[in-house]
């Protein structure tokens, strides 16, 4: 077991190290100073943050309802919520594109499809499923007894949630946010189909990797990849550091 687990950890490290080994500092500096890559970086940071916030706003109530209530058709809803996780990412993009051919979405398509909102929506559709799953597990781990006691102390259901349950779910919220942000950052297929890959318009970091590869600039592609690895690692480290601080507090 140790050998198998160790092999996987070593493989991850070797993949990352190979990226670093194949490029050089000069290429990294040159690529990162290009206005297209800087635009791509800014759009990635903005869209990932927006899609993460949207995912959390949706994931908290859905996660809570799925954790606490039993209703007819619950298993069907549960399966529907998992669809974006199991669906090939490209199919998510195609489905969004088709959806925006029908009203009422069609009325908005000129402001959404192949524009920046399409980037955010494509990221949200996949990231939210992961956030919902994480929040549900988080609420499952909080005993119902706390809400029951809060009800006897004078709370209504909404107060019991916001005053007693929600503060206890902050680690889950942090985990869901981190996961959603990291998923959004890595999202490529749905963005390519639904938002396109127009430079200085709907280009995010995975799109940049794709465009650099298309133009045969292997070192440029690896430089953007290294930037993505650094961003993902920074988010994970930050989330863990914040989580630890709160636990210690």
């Amino acid at each position: 077991m140790v050998v198998l687990g160790g092999f996987y950890v070593v493989m991850i490290l070797l993949m990352v190290l190979a990226d670093f080994a194949y490029t050089d500092l000069e290429s990294l500096k040159r690529t990162l100073s290009e206005p297209e890559i800087q635009y791509s970086l800014k759009l990635s940071l903005l869209s990932c943050t927006l899609s993460t916030l949207m995912s959390l706003v949706v994931a908290v109530p859905i996660g809570y309802i799925m954790s606490r209530f039993t209703f007819r058709g619950q298993s069907v809803v549960d399966a529907i919520l998992d669809i974006p996780i199991v669906l090939p990412p490209l199919v998510v993009g195609i489905s969004l594109l088709v959806l925006f051919n029908y009203p009422p979405f069609h009325w908005l398509s000129r402001w959404v499809v192949f524009e920046v909102p399409a980037v955010v929506l494509a990221q949200f559709m996949v990231a939210c499923a992961f956030a919902v799953r994480t929040m549900r597990v988080s609420f499952d781990q909080i005993p119902v007894r706390f809400e029951q006691v809060a009800l006897t102390l004078g709370c209504n259901r909404s107060q019991a949630f916001w005053l007693v349950v929600f503060p206890q779910s902050r680690r889950g919220l942090l985990a869901a946010g981190t996961l959603a942000w990291a998923r959004s950052l890595g999202e490529f297929g749905p963005i390519l189909v639904f938002a396109g890959s127009t430079r200085m318009r709907t280009e995010v970091l995975p799109t940049s990797v794709y465009l650099e590869m298309q133009s045969g600039d292997l070192k440029g592609m690896l430089s953007v990849s290294i930037l993505m690895i650094a961003l993902s690692a920074a988010v994970l480290i930050l989330a863990r550091a914040l989580g630890m601080q709160r636990i210690n507090a």
């Binding site: 005993p143 007894r145 706390f146 006691v149 902050r170």
Partner: peptide
């Protein structure tokens, strides 16, 4: 309740 259920936060 038996487990007291003091709010952890």
């Amino acid at each position: 309740p038996q487990d007291r259920a003091l709010f952890p936060t």
